[in-house]
Write a protein that binds this DNA or RNA. Structure first.
Lengths: 291, 291
DNA sequence: CCAATAGTGTCTGTTAGACAATATTCT
DNA sequence: AGAATATTGTCTAACAGACACTATTGG
């Protein structure tokens, strides 16, 4: 049989096939309200969730996403979903992880490729709430709850409980995820399990926790932070973005040294702030990460 | 309609579904032969490929892998394939990336989750060639060919050509992959394209190039190198593993300082080496990566 | 004037790179 | 003895953390 004959006679339906979806983790960092005109407005990390209109998990909140159609690539499907929710293009988009447990979805076997998108809140303001479907931004915070380390024959098992909290003006959601890290011999394995989830559909709490961890790691060794910034920004704003994602305060002097080569000065200044005006910067596209 | 009724009446076949496979990138670092009894044997990075017995790409070399069955998770499928090829368990296994272009496979729409496995060559020696199917280890090297950087409206496009070479006693394969890195505004995108491929099936050259890059990155900031080591090893052997993966020489003094906390001394020494014997070490499971 | 932030200077301790120097084996 | 590797010591430059200090605005 020639290759051509083979392909003509190939019957793809012989094998059972799963459904494949993309799940979108759309993050932004937005300003909070601040009463004192002199103080800077604090920033918060936010994620976009949609309210499920249908079974299963009807009424609960889920990651935006949908089935991948036969004539689009995974990336194209992710882009399509992203447009649908934010109508912004040229956005940071990165494949995160593909979730393939057997009973993730009560309907049928579903394998989900998750994508993380980062958008800057300024270009977003437009579409924020006026969405047709029930998409809403939630502030997102995670909290270390407790840790448990056990010795085994040839290594250790560390269990860590992390709580996620999501909230906006109308709603508050939460979940607890247990992360089990198994060191056996020279290899390490990590597993995630949802311990408790409150109005968050499917295994999406687990996916969000994973994404948050990845975001936190990547902001330290890549330039993704700039994807969260508007065209022009001050170094203090940039620092705030790092701080809200890392969940800790940074020293301004050291921070400025670290980002010095990644940004370019402009000769614009922020006005009417009630204190010394700060210079606006932009991303330096000639900056190269590697040596 | 209740959720229960909904689920009972749910018809999964309404949507066209792709086939899903796992592709395994099984790496090891093995000793080369060395004539001079006094000299250390150099090491080489190797990858396991299988010769395709059927159409399409019959006779060409491909990554081990196969279809994911409905009653196993992605990880379980990856484990199963790994066992099939190496019959070693408790191995380092990590999901790499999921490839979802529309025409990756001439038979039908196939989405492939790729997994990287690291095995130590010592426990492997057993299964090396006696495999039933046509699986073979290939030495693997990549070579930077050329780079091309173009300015655009709001950023740059960098194209990089990388050549991969695979060889063993019987066979030699090669491929060229073009990596396009687009910096536009504050976002970066990376794409990979196979420019030329020689007896390597599907888009697997691209996947291997990606895996190699990931391996190179991860060895710098994680402890995956130990997954490539036998139970006991000398610090020079460990350094050789770093060197062969990073493709550059390291200074012994600095290297030893860096890994000092990650290993534990034993009181065994390598014997009969024609020079000063080196101490054997083992991985220190109490070492924690993070602070 | 003063609250509040912007931005800089400098000290200190840690670490990576470089390389020299010493130690130890087997044939 | 001599080849070859193992292992340690030390100098230096770079850099991150800490913190003090100066600069600049709007009300």
């Amino acid at each position: 049989m020639t290759e051509k004959q083979f392909l003509q006679s190939y019957d793809a339906s012989r094998f059972a096939r799963p459904s494949v979806t993309v799940d979108m983790l759309i993050f932004t960092v937005a300003d909070e309200q601040e009463a004192n005109y002199r103080k800077l407005s604090p920033k918060s990390l936010q994620i976009l969730l949609v309210k499920r209109a249908d079974h299963p998990f009807m009424g609960q909140w889920a990651l935006p996403g949908g089935f991948v159609s036969p004539e689009e690539s995974l990336e194209e499907a992710a882009m399509r979903e992203l447009q649908m929710e934010t109508n912004i293009d040229n956005i940071y988009l990165e494949q995160l992880y593909t979730w393939g447990d057997v009973n993730r979805d009560p309907r049928t076997r579903v394998i989900s490729a998750s994508y993380m998108a980062l958008v800057d809140s300024e270009s977003l303001e437009v579409k924020a709430g006026e969405d047709a479907d029930d998409a809403r931004w939630f502030r997102l915070e995670d909290k270390w709850l407790r840790e448990n380390k056990i010795a085994t024959q040839d290594g250790t098992i560390t269990e860590k409980w992390v709580q996620l909290r999501f909230w906006n003006e109308a709603e508050e959601l939460s979940a607890t995820v247990k992360i089990t890290r198994t060191v056996a011999g020279r290899t390490v394995r990590e597993e995630r399990e949802i311990v408790e989830t409150n109005h968050i559909a499917f295994d999406h709490a687990k996916i969000i926790q994973y994404a948050l961890e990845r975001l936190r790691n990547k902001i330290e060794y890549t330039d993704i932070a700039f994807a969260l910034m508007p065209e022009l920004f001050t170094l203090t704003e940039l620092q705030q973005v790092y701080e809200v994602i890392l969940g800790k305060e940074l020293l301004a002097a050291a921070f400025r040294r670290k980002v010095a080569d990644k940004v370019m000065e402009t000769n614009h200044y922020r006005k009417h702030a009630g204190h010394r005006p700060s210079k606006y910067y932009r991303f330096n596209p000639d900056w190269t990460d590697n040596a």
